[in-house]
Nucleic acid binder design. Structure first.
Lengths: 364, 364
DNA sequence: CTGTTAGCGCGTTCAC
DNA sequence: GTGAACGCGCTAACAG
């Protein structure tokens, strides 16, 4: 028998120095209203000998200001260290230049890439990202949507196509552009940048069945997108006589250790399974590790199918067969859809199926 | 010879249906000013038969309103579907209830956990997270800091202790609480929730040298925190006669494939290295995979040391020896420090060394 | 416990 | 190409 050791070997001492520095900053007094931090546009205008509106134009539409005036204003801005108050500007213009994004969780690298795609694309156009995590909970999502709308975000990006009735209602009435990602909802709220989880599940089923496996197992989360993949898988299984489908609930923490546990559990009644479709590659990789530990050959004795095509899929041995989804691309496309609409242009296509690829490698 | 296959096997068709739905939403006309989306506080006040300030108090300090009045107001809010405009509130109160966080990149799970810790802790108190990615670039960080301050974020969380001179100046003058994470800067801007990268590197060096390894190699990023770990490692190496230290630059994409490449490169002159300290566990895991592929025994022929103690470290075989850093905790502590200061309370300790642990497992 | 008054800092509308 | 007045929607301060 073999164990995994986890030993605390060294702990750095707490450092309690630098307390003088601290005292300074802890007692930073908050100045009273009307001059909280730095100069206002008025001060800049006065220094440059122009009116506020000219300063505003230098900032927002520099082309409409004479070069000479502009330079004077810019000099004044630099001298005063003026930083425009975007809240005030936002209130006046009814635009926040903020996009809200709600993902189930950020610690899962599959959504992290979508967030990165969003953030990069938006930042390039001067927009910022307000991030919310729903923890796969529709009520949490609902309150996040309310908060974000209260902040007057200019647009909203959601994960998945299932939302509470109230969320949907608010969004439809809200008048701001919305993009749903990571799925293809039947009745989109507005725009969509996703792929079909159902078709992905079916593709996996068809592939595994074609390879001769008959006792399939699905080990994925309880969320709607996982459910759609499960239904796709089921639809493939039902077309083949003698093929069976078992659903294995996921232990907490959908990562490597979770994948190991799933295999350990399933092997207690080994005859029931000969191929497993996991909810993500970390789980699948853990499963492969557990198989190696138990001397179970992959894929000949047990086929392992991943999802999301994370880096590890191609790098490990045996390399993971997986479904590549357009993780980052969904973020980029969603951002560009929003930006297009915010520019007042209209989209040719508001619902985009970004597809997926079955990456056939070694593990299944 | 063995190759990794990557075959596109199936691509879902693009779906161009649902275009009727689209037309509707694409041409959503933006209503003219003054009623952009829903009712205002004034409407609620009128319906409830009270003044605006009472509505405001029901929302912000419910305890200070009579139960009867409160219920009437809440009913009116529900009836009108009123969503408070937080930009207006923010302008008036000079508080945004937004915290800005800048991380080098979000697609790296080590920072993702910090962001999650931040987001969870802040959301529980009604604060939101504005997220920025610096891509390890100080100039990008500088402009993000300016933008965030322009949005009047109530507080700011930064990664690392190195910033441009202008950034530091703005932050010190800004009057908002700031927390630096993932390091212990010598001259903190304000508060700190981090650990010593130098000591972590030194601990790794002492451990490896005690195990008898002499030809050490550092394979980490070029950022300041990696540099600090390298210096720590170097300081340990310099105390042992005959011990050598080689620095191996990291290929792009600090993940599994990168770790494999590093090993492949190093083995071209094998005699130079017998232990490698990687910048994160994904790299280290890739390195172990490459060793297995080449039939190099880990750790007896080559010791592999990871960093960050990601899930995979404990789950893989051989399990990775690594440095556990308080990834999520840094986010939580940073958030709590900010929240404490924003409540007007002062902190006992403004600089916290959250420490690290050397997790001695099998790979080194 | 509730209301009144007076802005928060900026963009919009129109005029020049 | 530039400016003046007005108001975005809400809250701080004080009064009652």
């Amino acid at each position: 028998m073999k164990f995994l050791f986890k030993i605390c070997y060294y702990v750095s001492a707490n450092i309690n120095s630098k307390l003088e520095n601290l005292e300074m900053s802890i007692t930073t007094p908050r100045k009273s209203r009307a001059s909280s931090a730095g100069s206002r546009m008025e001060d800049v205008a006065a220094m440059a000998g122009v009116s506020m509106i000219t300063v505003s134009r230098v900032l927002n539409t520099p082309d409409k200001v004479a070069v000479k005036t502009r330079d004077a204003v810019l000099a004044a801005i630099k001298k005063t260290g003026y930083v425009p108050n975007l809240m005030a500007g936002g209130l006046a213009s009814n635009k926040s230049r903020i996009i809200g994004a709600i993902v189930p969780t950020i610690d899962n690298s599959i959504f992290a890439d979508t967030v990165r795609g969003l953030s990069d694309t938006l930042a390039a156009q001067g927009y910022q990202l307000l991030l919310g995590q729903s923890n796969y909970d529709l009520k949490t999502e609902e309150s996040l949507v309310a908060t974000f709308m209260g902040r007057r975000v200019d647009g909203l990006v959601l994960t998945g196509g299932t939302h509470s009735a109230l969320t949907t209602k608010r969004l439809r009435q809200g008048g701001i552009p919305v993009v749903q990602t990571w799925d293809l909802p039947k009745k989109p709220i507005d725009m969509v940048a996703g792929f079909s989880n159902f078709e992905a599940g079916r593709a996996v089923g068809q592939y595994l069945l074609a390879k001769g496996w008959r006792k399939l197992c699905f080990a994925g989360g309880p969320d709607d997108r996982s459910a759609a993949r499960l239904e796709g898988l089921r639809s493939a299984v039902e077309r083949v006589r003698g093929a069976t489908l078992k659903v294995e609930p996921l232990p907490a923490g959908a990562s490597f250790a979770g994948g190991r546990k799933v295999v350990a559990t399933l092997l207690q009644n080994k005859s029931l399974t000969d191929a497993i479709f996991f909810g993500n590659d970390a789980l699948a990789a853990g499963a492969v590790m557990e198989c190696q530990h138990r001397n179970i050959a992959v894929p000949s004795q047990l086929a392992i199918f991943g999802f999301a095509d994370l880096d590890i899929a191609a790098a490990m041995e045996p390399a993971l067969t997986s479904i590549r989804v357009p993780t980052r691309e969904m973020g980029e496309v969603a951002a560009n859809m929003l930006l297009t609409r915010l520019k007042g242009e209209s989209l040719e296509v508001g619902v985009r199926d970004l597809g997926f690829e079955l990456m056939a490698r070694e593990s299944a």
